[in-house]
Design a protein around this nucleic acid. Sequence first.
DNA 1: GGGAATCTTGCCCGCCAGGCAAGTTTGCTC
DNA 2: GAGCAAACTTGCCTGGCGGGCAAGATTCCC
Lengths: 200, 200
Amino acid sequence: MDEGAGLRERKKAATRLALHEAALRLAAEQGPDRVTVEAIADGANVSRRTFSNYFSSKEEALFYGDTRRLRRLLDLLRAQPPDESPWVALSRAALHLTAEMYDDGEVLAWLERRRRLRGHPGLLAHQAAAYAAFERELAGELAQRLTDPDRALRARIMAATFLATVRVATQHWIEHPDTPMVATLRAALAHATPAPEATS
Amino acid sequence: MDEGAGLRERKKAATRLALHEAALRLAAEQGPDRVTVEAIADGANVSRRTFSNYFSSKEEALFYGDTRRLRRLLDLLRAQPPDESPWVALSRAALHLTAEMYDDGEVLAWLERRRRLRGHPGLLAHQAAAYAAFERELAGELAQRLTDPDRALRARIMAATFLATVRVATQHWIEHPDTPMVATLRAALAHATPAPEATS
DNA sequence: GGGAATCTTGCCCGCCAGGCAAGTTTGCTC
DNA sequence: GAGCAAACTTGCCTGGCGGGCAAGATTCCC
């Protein structure tokens, strides 16, 4: 990926990814609390101080994967036809994304490590925070697809509920991997589909 | 409130509340980053160490109000007729709660302080985390009101989307207090109302 | 090749979470 | 009331963290 950019950019992306991978691996091995930032930095062959240049906390490093995926989701959303209903566009983008993840092939290792982190309530909170950081951005994109009088509120609601749905679906799938992920996601999105505006 | 309990319990509740108030006041006055835990403890006439006995971080103290309100919401939900549709029960409980808040009369001071904290993205993340900590509990309650084959997933989705909606509605109202809060909440809940299960 | 921009690292400071133990307050029983 | 146990507060202390700063290394671009 990112083949186009210069050496500097590629190196940065590489260390950022290395830090993320190290964080995830170590957290899965030893439990998230037993891992120090220093250990993560070592695992990526980088000084502790450099870690701080990339991430502002252990947890941010841990969920950098989610962050990247959400950014990708935004791109996929932008690629949807602009006259499509916003929720449908969101759903398509999300399903497209999970398909991509399967193509990557790395899903299995990822799933395994994520399963070991299941049930640490502190981590769930940080994950929710990571998702929440995206709400404004996503809401901005959605607002352009709405014509409502109060699009601002509607866009934020839709962004928040959609992200919550994706987050829960992923979590649920991690805990019940017997069902394929797309099926879980599809069901979750169906459950959360907003009613076509009952004009109360 | 809590008149029934013994002295010990009442004192604990009082210091916990005092710490929360101090945190909110100081954060609103000086900005959340410029406030140290020590200052909050001082503001509540308590040692720094005691702060840690009540809250595990500044942010937890800051959002203790939200936490309390969410607990109250759960009680109100339990008080709804058990044959009511889950989403309607949730909505009623939420509207009931905001009505209670207005009755309290302290909403104005609260609003003022919260407005000053608007736009600190780090805080929004922590708020999302506080709400996320409630998802499991709420989902548990909702699961009892569902008969679905996959109630587990449905309950979690509904809990997550509902909490996201309440959170966004509150935030939106803080930023646009010209509209009354119940109106904002009602609109938000209407936008997020799930469709009656399109059997895809 | 050479200067400018950028990145890495080590050093450092103030802050923070939480274990431990001594001292204090509350609850309970007689 | 007296006295004891449970629970709470506090100070002390440790390991870890976030981020400012400046010196040195690397990359970029002319």
